[in-house]
Design a binder for these strands. Structure first.
Lengths: 142, 142
DNA sequence: TAAATATACTTGATTATTCAAGTATTAATT
DNA sequence: AATTAATACTTGAATAATCAAGTATATTTA
């Protein structure tokens, strides 16, 4: 009769806590800025990318979604003017996506809310512990 | 111009890494045992609950899903015989759910796969680090 | 004790995401 | 150069999850 080990229990804890964290962030961002946490992450990646633009496939990998998922989630974001198509890819298969001026504004406003919320969530977590989480996650084979 | 802080960056890292972890676990469990990571977590909660049964609402809270979400995810699990209705709740609003004998078998087999996979993922993470993750997550206001 | 409020759950409609298949293009192989 | 294989992306069909509304029951309040 196999019993669950410490690493598996850790995986479960990570899953549940992150789900809870995501809900908090979603609520915090959606009410005021009209975007979810994942959409925020997309804007964050774009704004930190060279030329504020990325290939859709690279974005997909960065946010752990499929190419299809990216196509589908970007379409409404494009419609409300947060992102737009970027041009001149040498490779005609590629269509790059770019954050717009509006997207940047929303991003900066949302950053404020997110910072507040994450400070609130992590009030009782020390800087050393935060550093520890980052390092440990980085050591995982993911 | 607001810039993202360390805690928000940590939240993003947690989100992305956990998404990646979940994909690995899903793949590992689905191919062999026909269940996803979340379904495994449900079985895990049930098997560790008194009488191997829980109220649906408590299950919802435990896995960070809505009551509706639990109804919907339990229905196919019931159909394939992993869980079943438990009876005698004093409160007629409540319908408790219980893991079946079949569910227990699948759970124990799946535990084996999960343990292997999580060991593989966390080979380069020390016990101290694992402990650190658990403690830090526990200190968060979630 | 009657009425108002809260809780547990389900369901219809909607949104999000995936997979499999298809298109277009590029790169590798022969 | 022609064929084969690989890559980037989109789309139809299916699955998962949410929200809002509804039902039934229990609890609180007046």
């Amino acid at each position: 009769m196999n019993t669950i080990n410490k690493n598996s229990e850790t995986a479960i804890t990570l899953w549940v806590k992150t789900a809870s964290l995501t809900r908090k962030m979603d609520a915090s961002l959606a009410s005021v800025h009209g975007i979810g946490f994942l959409e925020y992450i997309v804007l964050h990646r774009l704004i930190n990318a060279p030329g504020n633009a990325m290939r859709r496939i690279d974005l997909a990998n960065a946010i752990c979604r499929t190419a299809s998922g990216v196509t589908r989630m970007l379409s409404p974001m494009e419609k409300i003017g947060l992102v737009e198509k970027a041009d001149n890819p040498r490779d005609a298969r590629v269509s790059r996506i770019k954050i717009t001026k509006t997207g940047e504004e929303i991003y900066h406003d949302a950053t404020n809310s997110l910072n507040e919320k994450s400070n609130q969530v992590m009030t009782h977590v020390s800087e050393k512990q935060i550093e520890g989480i980052i390092v440990s996650l980085d050591h995982m084979n993911l």
